[in-house]
Design a protein around this nucleic acid. Sequence first.
DNA 1: ATGAAAGCGCTAACAG
DNA 2: CTGTTAGCGCTTTCAT
Lengths: 342, 342
Amino acid sequence: MATKKRTTIKDVAREAKVSIASVSRVLNGSGGVTPETQEIVRATAARLSYVPDNAARSLITGRTNTVGAVLPDLYGEYFSELIRGIDLAARARGLHLLVSSSHDGVDAAAAAVRAMRGRVDGMLILSEFVDAAFLEANLPSDLPAVLLDSPVKSTRYPALNIDNFAGANAMVRHLLDLGHGSVALIAGPRGNFDAQEREKGYRSAMASHAPKAALNIVAGDFTEESGYRAGRELLAQKVRPRAVFAGNDMMAVGCLYAFREAGLEVPRDIALAGFDDILIARYVTPPLSTVRVRIADMGKSALLMLAELMDGSGPPAASIHTLGCDVVVRDSCGERHIRAGL
Amino acid sequence: MATKKRTTIKDVAREAKVSIASVSRVLNGSGGVTPETQEIVRATAARLSYVPDNAARSLITGRTNTVGAVLPDLYGEYFSELIRGIDLAARARGLHLLVSSSHDGVDAAAAAVRAMRGRVDGMLILSEFVDAAFLEANLPSDLPAVLLDSPVKSTRYPALNIDNFAGANAMVRHLLDLGHGSVALIAGPRGNFDAQEREKGYRSAMASHAPKAALNIVAGDFTEESGYRAGRELLAQKVRPRAVFAGNDMMAVGCLYAFREAGLEVPRDIALAGFDDILIARYVTPPLSTVRVRIADMGKSALLMLAELMDGSGPPAASIHTLGCDVVVRDSCGERHIRAGL
DNA sequence: ATGAAAGCGCTAACAG
DNA sequence: CTGTTAGCGCTTTCAT
């Protein structure tokens, strides 16, 4: 279809009265061609609006100039920012982007990864289903890849992670500094890597800045609904906490609704903070203090890393890079100013 | 890189002690092979973990099994929903998805379209820069394509549009039915197709349901900031309108802030509605009545249409399909119930 | 500086 | 039912 009867290099060669080799040389800038010949070839190619066939080119060069991005079924805002970061960086390097999202299980993820074989020169993988065995089984050993936000300590692939620990730690510390004697945590889903790191950050901040205060952790699963339930659970405790740190913004929003429903005013009666800085955070009442994650940067950095890997000049395999977060202080935690860059 | 020294069809043939043709036949299900041979081939292929080379396959078949999606630099939520719809439908049909987003001008869009030549069997194009001449100049005449949300009346490509007119019309009618004597409009950017259609919908509803009321249109450009300014402008009018229909949700949100700042209560003092049903709409106070656009459906339908086009069984070129919207009634317009599907 | 020719890995006739 | 073979469009030696 696409390549039904396009003009080929032969047509150009014939029209330009040169050999196909010369045409190839000119169009690839391989040098060794007279300026005059170059001119003729270029003109003819333009006249016939010749476009080299990528399949043929890939077949012989072994390169596709395409990178693949495998992403899970994830929440809109995060996804689009990430993709944008990746796409921009890819375009800047003349690379195309093949995406595959929405995988709801290991098998789907594996299929997605495998389907990209031979179509891409490198891959960006972000999936909770990825582990060392998964990679071993589904990735050709010679295909460069970069792992995003992954717990895998692979010896073969570099990983790029968000500093969930530091972000959570900083936010809890901030809450504590504000004078809220003790902070409760609404945890994220058990198996989730981000959730675990954030919880660790919470524990660490509590241990170092409020060693006498008891830990107060209620369960959640990153959904608004679970945040709402957690909020009610918190209010039912004998002593109502002074501040709550939710493992992500959606839960914070749910929690906010629970508080509002109970007639409490945030932050006067109880302080609240989230994590992610999703768009909504700015628009709820009161605006939510949260931890901003620079997703687009992560996409960009990941692509750059992958590109280097593909050039053979990349970072040592197994390196783990970490991207910082910013504490964004809005109204929900009881103070107003911005503390950035940790 | 990716294809450095992979096992080829020859290796499989040798190991299975059959001809490469048989291997090809088995793996393509072209039939005409004994079950036993099939079994042997399949087993050896699996054992060698053989994966056919896409480039070679494309070269000879002329198909890439990939569709391209060219999107402008657009707002996160819309983009991710659209992509998800497309991706899901593509996967269901065994098609891969090559994306290119973030184009800030005609040239960038043209480059993006051209770069996909030969890499895809069909294209989905959503760009404000697209018009008949653009397509003529940048798309190979034999490449199937579907236009998304485009004003172009092309004789060559089918288009899939959102029924902005009907959506706006229904919302304004709803506002009028509620008894708000006259409705003001915050218009979108001048050149924008969606904005124009929505304005027409407003005019039409006013003409038919409130023929005696004067039209009241203030300018906006789809940004929150412009909505805020428009809100102030509206409040400065001699007679404050009873209801305001904003051309999109972001402007409605900005407008809401202007009203709040002026000490007005929505919807008691003034009713407000938007368009798009972005996530935020649900979370502002009061929740915003709006018009829901089924973006993911649009992506899916577009891909299905494209797939048919690629099979040769597609809709007649130049057909224009329209996707309905739903009026979503929340608190901001002064009544609570849902009216769906128009 | 240019051209001829050998494949890249695969599918699709065409023979047998 | 199976094997042989001719390319698909291109890059890249290797001659000239």
